[in-house]
Write a protein that binds this DNA or RNA. Sequence first.
DNA 1: GTAGGGTTAG
Length: 578
Amino acid sequence: MAPGTVQLNILGWNKKLRKYVKDGQAQKAMQLFQQIQQEGMSPDTFTFVQVINACAGLGALEEGRHVHEQIIQSGCESDVFVGNSLVDMYAKCGSIEDSWKMFKKMPSRDVVTWNTMILGRVKCGQGQKALELFQQMQQEGVQPNSVTFVGVLNACASVLALEDGRCAHKQIIESGWDSDIFVGSSLVDIYAKCGSMEDAWNVFKNMPSRHVVTWTTMILGHVKCGQGQKALELFRQMQRENVRPNSVTFVGVLNACASIVALEEGRCAHEQIIECGWDSDVFVGSSLVDMYAKCGSMEDAQRVFNKMPSHDVVTWNSMILGHVKCGQGQKALELFQQMNKEGVQPDSVTFVGVLNACASIVALEEGRCVHQQIIESGWDSNVFVGNSLVDMYAKCGSMEDAQTVFNKMPSHDVISWNAILGGCAMHGHGNEALKLFEQILHDFTKIGTLQLVDLLGRAGKLHEAENMIKAMPGKPYVPAWRALLAACKIHGNVEMGERVAKQFLELEPENAVDYVLLSNIYAAAGNRHLCENVELQRHERGVENQTGRTWIEVKNEVHSFIAGNQAHPQMIEIHTEL
DNA sequence: GTAGGGTTAG
């Protein structure tokens, strides 16, 4: 075949290849690539770009590497388009290291190269590194464009870097990219994700045009900030402006309904979803299940679940967690078995739900089976799963297993300590609780003081705790004393409470919480006189009861309420009532 | 007459 013929023909093949890739038929594109080579034609840079795109679409790392080899052999690797597609392919196939290697290897880079690398870093959770790349890009004199800013804003949002986001916003305005709809949506997104709804609104209002994605971002932002009602208002406004919702919009609306337990609104949304044909979407379906479950209608949740054409791990999780929350632990376990039968791989959320189910119905044997499965699937190093295992064993009465799991955990948080100490207290293992408490003191700063109140109260070993705090090396550690004071309150130990309070009211006389705790101890003991004395003392020392907020504790939970800047006049009555 | 990177989600 004459070389001229080859060149003429490859153009046609490339066009066909491009169409497959554009239509998402990556597998067909790969077959076509095979065919091109079988026909004895040499792929050119255009061919390679499309094939690499197909590999990226399939997430086919090995095939991608293989094509890369061919590219090197053909001498096309230094082409900037080919290089860009390789950087992108490696990132999309999950190998950010190869992506970075390719980036560094490229003899020349353009703005697309930088954008691809920045976005790749963001997508694999390296937001900070993406921001560094942006700096570097500017130092090298490459002008950012709208895609760059989308990537940068995503990076800021992913690491909640609000200030960096504001800087980028300024730059965006200066360079005139703020009227771009993609950039605008990303601006709304970063402000909403960082909890600054006011800024999000400002961007939103000033945008020259809004797209369904912009509206959806606003709706989701309000849901995340706990403003479900406002999210629904936005949804109505969006429809008045004739913007058609998409599947993501409905996910946001259903989240909003779930968050404010608005069953009727949820049903309305469901009707609309059916009309628009989104009910077969697995994301929408899972959100429907979740919404009905959170609104307490498990029948509806089950009905939606049965109608869905396919279930993934999140759909199953919504069902399992919904049943656990409604007190139907047995049903949750049945669902888990069904899920296993259908070959859907459980994740940490599944295991937490299933272990909670076991604990709720005291199903130790089932719990052990689940534990085995957790070990086999490698989820046992996850702290959430570990906590649930400790809790399950403790609630099922096997403190030995609870202790073994606890000791094997790579790290502990407040939930872990609560689970193990709660178990010790429940089963009267006072000495074990004390040993654990000693361990906690070594790791004190990581434990929230208020939670410790609970632990100490449950362990019921106030004197030992007092001695241990005294034995702690270094300066007296006020939070530890404060925790003990609160524990005295739980235990009604007025004598120790007074002693402890006196000690550290001198260490930190300006903290209103301590006065409140002490006066709570007196109030709980029914001594209004001493209670008033403490308030008087606080007043004399000029300590304001900050923002007029005071704390009370009911059933081991700390509640706060606003009082005047005096002690609440009905402190004792409130306590008696509670 | 062919190429590359982009917004929201359970």
